[in-house]
């Protein structure tokens, strides 16, 4: 495939961008990719560990503009309240300062994390005893609402026997409620 930009060289860098569900793809040759991202191919490709980091910070930098200009415009720079790391410092070192940085830079990061990781949400293992916000909200709900959520879930998974059982349980609880009232 030829490069989308210069239409001369073989495209080696495939760049996919998804904004608000709209997907656009670009296929670039090394030269054009270098121009766009100031990412140096060649030597750095032999050392994936460093190249990933530098690729990341150049992509991030190009996406969200120069942090210094941002500072001039808004009077203050994006930073993390907990460890004090600024966004430009993060771009320079390519490392976060603490767990809270992920929230502090969330807005500008989301897109990039999706680019690096292929997804922006973790679905794998969780630490022991970890309770997500959704789990917590569900836990504090009245019994009927909990059952309704499980009913929805069962219907989506086409587990109709379970769904019927949950439906009967909900009916029973409703009846009791009315009687009590």
């Amino acid at each position: 495939m030829l490069c989308d930009k210069c239409k001369k060289n073989e495209a080696k860098v495939y760049y996919t961008e998804i904004v608000n569900g709209e997907k656009s793809e670009q296929h670039l040759c090394e030269e054009c990719a270098t121009e766009l991202t100031s990412f140096q191919m060649g030597a750095s490709i032999l050392n994936p560990e460093t190249s990933l980091g530098s690729l990341l910070s150049t992509i991030l930098g190009n996406y969200h503009g120069n942090p210094a200009q941002e500072k001039e415009r808004t009077g203050k720079e994006l930073h993390c309240d907990k460890c004090g790391m600024t966004y430009s410092e993060f771009l320079r070192v390519g490392r976060f300062g603490c767990d809270h940085c992920y929230d502090s830079f969330d807005k500008v990061l989301e897109q990039s994390i999706r680019n690096i990781q292929g997804s922006d949400a973790h679905t794998g293992k969780k630490p022991k005893d970890f309770e997500s916000k959704t789990d917590k909200i569900i836990k504090e709900m009245p019994e009927i609402d909990k059952l309704s959520i499980r009913l929805q879930d069962a219907i989506e998974k086409e587990e109709f026997e379970e769904a019927a059982r949950l439906r009967d349980q909900i009916r029973k609880l409703r009846k009791e409620e009315i009687n009590n009232a």
Binding site: G53, Y102, I113, H122, G124
Partner: peptide, 9 residues
Amino acid sequence: YGYLTSCPT
């Protein structure tokens, strides 16, 4: 995001 690490990669 899952397990948080120094490097976003």
